[in-house]
Nucleic acid binder design. Structure first.
Length: 264
DNA sequence: CGGGACGCCTGTGAGC
DNA sequence: TGCTCACAGGCGTCCC
């Protein structure tokens, strides 16, 4: 998309927040290099002729929520019921389809100020950032008394592990989801960090997860879900020890785990 | 300040 | 067969 010139911006039903800028103000803006932080995407937009392609420019912060998907079309197909955002450019259209509308598209004057800065502040480390080490991960957990599952989900220590991947990572690391984060030893924190990384890497390979209700023809449905060791498998035998997988509620979210393989 | 509950939204599948 | 209803999830926001 880099270098594409915006022709028009179209909105469908409201997403999580208002766009924050009248749609006609986007015409003639030029798209820069797309970036990512956590589950947010940053789409820089700068005036035609400007050479500033860095994070210093204004842009759009996008989030796919839980049911959002983006697609790039050379032309502009008719908008469907769940197509809530179209960025039409001279090279094609970027479209956001989001049935549940937990997703967001918000304009920000820069990545480091305004709504973008507010939404990104407080995000935890990128899981594959080399600066995130077993030592720093363990140290961050030492400050938290909440159950480790809740801490992973909160995303302020490490981003990227939502409900499915948090459950899977804890299983892989052999850690009970209700264990207080600050009770996790150095060796186990090391294992957990490796497990989160392995889980996310595997999910990326398989194209992510697709909930049962979203395996539509659009975005190819991710294959990860069917590979899950514990997630969504309550009552079924653990594939390591055959003990039935259990389900518990933590912070209003379902947690799946094996009581034998995952110790406190 | 940390931790937990809540609400947004809608397709799906289970139960009647 | 048709209808109702609980449930699923990311994450900002509110309250204790």
């Amino acid at each position: 998309m880099r270098g594409a010139r915006v022709l028009q911006l179209r909105l469908g039903k409201p997403l999580r927040w208002p766009l924050g800028l009248p749609v006609d103000e986007f015409a003639e803006q030029v798209v820069g290099d797309i970036g990512r932080r956590g589950k947010y995407l940053w789409l820089p937009l700068h005036p035609a002729g400007s050479t500033d392609l860095s994070g210093g420019s204004a842009g759009l912060l996008l989030h796919l929520g839980m049911s959002g998907s983006l697609c790039w079309n050379p032309t502009l197909p008719p908008a469907g019921a769940h197509d809530h955002f179209d960025l039409q450019t001279d090279r094609g259209t970027l479209r956001l389809n989001d049935p549940r509308r937990f997703g967001a598209v918000v304009w920000s004057p820069s990545l480091h100020s305004g709504p973008a800065a507010r939404l990104l502040q407080g995000l935890g480390a990128e899981p594959f950032d080399a600066r995130l080490t077993p030592q720093s991960f363990h140290a961050a957990l030492q400050h938290r008394r909440a159950p480790i599952k809740a801490v992973l989900l909160a995303g302020d220590v490490i981003v990227g592990a939502g409900n499915i991947y948090a459950c899977e990572s804890l299983f892989l690391a052999g850690i009970h989801p209700a264990l207080r984060a600050d009770r996790i030893s150095r060796p186990r924190a090391t294992r957990l960090l490796a497990a989160v990384r392995a889980t996310l890497a595997r999910a990326l390979e398989l194209g992510g997860s697709t909930l049962r209700d979203f395996s539509d023809v659009h975005g190819a449905s991710g294959a990860y879900q069917s590979q899950a060791a514990v997630y969504g498998r309550a009552g079924q035998p653990c594939n390591q020890c055959a003990t039935p997988v259990r389900k518990l509620l933590q912070a209003q979210r379902s947690t799946y785990f094996c009581a034998l393989c995952q110790r406190r």
